[in-house]
C-alpha cells in the first residue's frame, strides 16, 4: 500500500511538469504584459525595458522556463511581480479561507445530496422524490452568485443574522470564522449537492435492481440494511469518483463565491493575478491547484479499497 502511494505520487510528477510547462507557454505566448500594467500608460520605453530586464522577461522563453524550474527544485516559486513578496507566502496568506470554504461546501453537498438521493431512489415516484428532484433541478440551474446574493439579502440585510461580507482568520476563534463562511459554504455547496442528489438517485436505482439486492431481501435482511449495506455501498464507488472530480468545479465556484462575499481568499488572488498578468503568481497557484487535484484523486483511489475489498493495489 505504502509502495503504491509512493508510486502514484512519483507518477504525478510528470503530469505536474506538463501542467507547469503548458501554463508557462500559454502565459508567454498570449499578448499582455505585466510591466505595462505595473508602470502605467505614462512609462517611457527605457523604463519599460529596464523593468523587463530586471524581471528577467527579456530572456528567451526557454531560459525563463529553465530558471523557473531551477528555483522550483529548491521549493521556490519565485516572487510576485505586484505584491513584493514570494509567491509561496502570498498563497499561504490567502489559502485558509479558500480551503475551509471548499471543505465546508463539500460537506454541505454530501450531507444534502446523499440522503436525498437515497430517499428519492427508495421512494421512487413519491412526493419526496418529485419534490427533491424539482429542487435539485432548480439548484443545478440557479447561478451560484445569484443564490449568494439572495442569501446575503435574507440573512445579512433583512434578518441580520450573519455578516454580509469579509472573513476573519481562524486565529480569531473557530465560530468567528465560521460565521463568515456559513453563507458562502451554502452557496457553493448547493449546486454540488443538487448534482450529487441526482447522481445518487440514478446510481441507487440501478443498483436496487441487481440480483444481490434481491438475494439479500430474500434471505430476510432488513430493508434498512439492504439499502445501506448492500445497495448504497455498491453505488458508492462511482459516487466517490464524482465527489473527487467535483473538486475542480468547487475551485471554480470558490473563485466566484469569494467575489460575491468579498472573502480575501486564493480565488480573489488568482483573479487579480490574471488581470494584472502576474506571471509567477498565476504559475504558482495553477501548480498548487494541480497538486491538490492529483492528491484528491489519489485519496479517491485509496477510498475504493475500503469500499470494495476486491480492489487491491500492490
Amino acid at each position: 500500500m505504502t509502495r503504491y502511494i509512493i508510486r502514484r505520487l512519483l507518477l504525478a510528477i510528470p503530469v505536474m511538469l506538463l501542467v507547469a510547462v503548458t501554463t508557462f507557454l500559454l502565459l508567454h505566448m498570449t499578448p499582455g504584459d505585466p510591466v505595462s500594467v505595473l508602470l502605467g500608460p505614462d512609462a517611457t520605453v527605457e523604463q519599460i525595458d529596464q523593468m523587463r530586464e530586471a524581471l528577467g522577461l527579456n530572456d528567451p522563453v526557454h531560459v525563463q522556463l529553465l530558471n523557473w524550474f531551477r528555483n522550483l527544485a529548491h521549493g521556490d516559486l519565485g516572487e510576485s511581480i505586484f505584491l513584493d513578496k514570494p509567491v509561496t507566502e502570498a498563497i499561504a496568506e490567502r489559502a485558509q479561507p479558500t480551503l475551509l470554504l471548499t471543505f465546508l461546501a463539500s460537506l454541505v453537498a454530501i450531507c444534502v445530496g446523499l440522503p436525498f438521493g437515497v430517499i428519492s431512489a427508495v421512494r421512487r415516484g413519491s412526493t419526496i422524490d418529485i419534490g427533491a428532484m424539482l429542487v435539485a433541478m432548480v439548484g443545478i440551474s440557479m447561478p451560484t452568485f445569484w443564490l449568494g446574493l439572495n442569501l446575503i439579502f435574507i440573512f445579512g440585510v433583512k434578518l441580520r443574522w450573519l455578516p454580509v461580507q469579509g472573513y476573519q482568520p481562524l486565529s480569531e476563534g473557530l465560530w468567528t470564522s465560521l460565521r463568515y463562511l456559513i453563507m458562502p459554504a451554502l452557496t457553493l455547496g448547493a449546486a454540488q449537492g443538487a448534482l450529487l442528489a441526482r447522481m445518487t438517485r440514478s446510481m441507487m436505482l440501478e443498483v436496487l435492481h441487481e440480483d444481490y439486492v434481491r438475494t439479500a431481501r430474500a434471505k430476510g435482511v432488513s430493508e434498512r440494511r439492504v439499502i445501506l449495506r448492500h445497495a448504497l455501498r455498491n453505488a458508492f464507488i462511482p459516487l466517490v469518483t464524482v465527489i473527487g472530480l467535483t473538486f475542480a468545479v468547487l475551485i471554480s465556484g470558490a473563485v466566484v463565491t469569494e467575489q460575491v462575499f468579498g472573502i480575501p481568499g486564493a480565488g480573489q488572488l488568482l483573479i487579480r493575478a490574471v488581470n494584472r498578468r502576474d506571471f509567477p503568481l498565476i504559475q504558482g497557484i495553477v501548480l498548487i491547484v494541480a497538486l491538490l487535484y492529483v492528491i484528491i484523486n489519489l485519496i479517491v483511489d485509496l477510498i475504493y479499497v475500503f469500499l470494495d475489498p476486491r480492489i487491491h493495489y500492490s
Binding site: 501542467v19 498570449t30 499578448p31 475542480a248 488568482l270 498578468r277 498565476i282 491547484v289
Partner: peptide
C-alpha cells in the same frame, strides 16, 4: 483530460484576459 481538469471559469477568465 488536461483541459477538463482545469477549473473551467478560471480557464475562461484567462482566455478572455489574454484575448
Amino acid at each position: 483530460d488536461a483541459v477538463m481538469a482545469f477549473p473551467g471559469i478560471i480557464l475562461a477568465i484567462g482566455i478572455v484576459a489574454a484575448t
